[in-house]
């Protein structure tokens, strides 16, 4: 479904991503792990078009995604839940979710989606008229995830959903994601620092370091490979 081919990208002349290639098939759950600064977030932003690509290709169902303007990519079924709980702080929770349903598909299936989102994360229903900026970190993360789901995406891209959250809340968010995935069969591309959690439920994984894939394979192979540990701890 998504195919990234020898992609180089970055903010200045020095690329953050070096000829990186990954792919995601429909129905898969793929995790990308790697230490901070490895280029995980940049990869997501390049897929979304916020960071320009320097060379390489990104194919979406066989079509060239780089030819689409960034805002149009959401309309193609890509939902990017950015890192750091980026909600619309001065809009209410329900308005945040409605904005998630900005693309055509989201509007068509709004009734069904909102029901499911509320069922998965009842706290959002309770807080629906509260301004998103006044919520706690975990609740904001749920708003961000809910916003992603509200577009009925073909692919949900989650960037470090556990970042900056207390461990118990991070665990809760993970459990919710697994529940959602089990029930909806959604295709997920996840970026995480916490390797174990990220790989536990994934079908496949990539290990990123300094902008390139250093290791890839099924979760099992990755978790038994010493080099993962080395990538993080240095010895």
């Amino acid at each position: 479904m998504l195919k990234v081919e020898s992609l180089s990208a970055g903010y200045s002349a020095v690329p953050v991503l070096n000829e990186l290639s990954i792919s995601v098939e429909a129905g898969e759950f793929v995790s990308i792990v790697g230490p901070n600064g490895a280029g995980k977030t940049t990869l997501f932003k390049t897929i979304s078009g916020v960071v320009p690509a320097m060379s390489g290709r990104i194919l979406w169902d066989g079509e060239d995604l780089l030819a689409c303007p960034p805002w149009q990519r959401a309309h193609l079924g890509l939902a990017h839940v950015p890192e750091g709980r980026q909600v619309f702080p001065s809009l209410s929770v329900i308005e945040n979710l409605e904005l998630g349903a900005y693309p055509e598909t989201g509007r068509r299936e709004w009734e069904r989606n909102i029901e499911r989102i509320y069922a998965w994360m009842p706290v959002l229903k309770e807080r629906r008229n509260q301004l998103a900026g006044t919520l706690s970190g975990g609740e904001q993360q749920m708003v961000a995830v809910g916003r992603g789901l509200a577009s009925s995406p073909k692919l949900l891209m989650l960037d470090e959903p556990s970042m900056g959250l207390a461990p118990t809340i991070a665990d809760f968010i993970f459990e919710k994601l697994m529940e959602i995935r089990k029930q909806s069969g959604l295709t997920i591309l996840l970026v995480e620092q916490r390797v174990a959690e990220a790989l536990q439920f994934a079908d496949r994984g990539y290990v990123l370091e300094t902008g390139r894939v250093v290791l890839e394979g099924t979760t099992k192979t990755l978790m038994s490979d010493d080099r993962v540990r080395q990538a993080y701890l240095g010895m």
Binding site: W71, Q72, R73, A74, V81, P89, L99, Y102, S151
Partner: peptide, 13 residues
């Protein structure tokens, strides 16, 4: 409110 997140939900900022 948040131009970056707006792009992610499909708004032409």
């Amino acid at each position: 409110d948040n131009p970056e997140a707006s792009t992610y939900v499909g708004i032409d900022v």
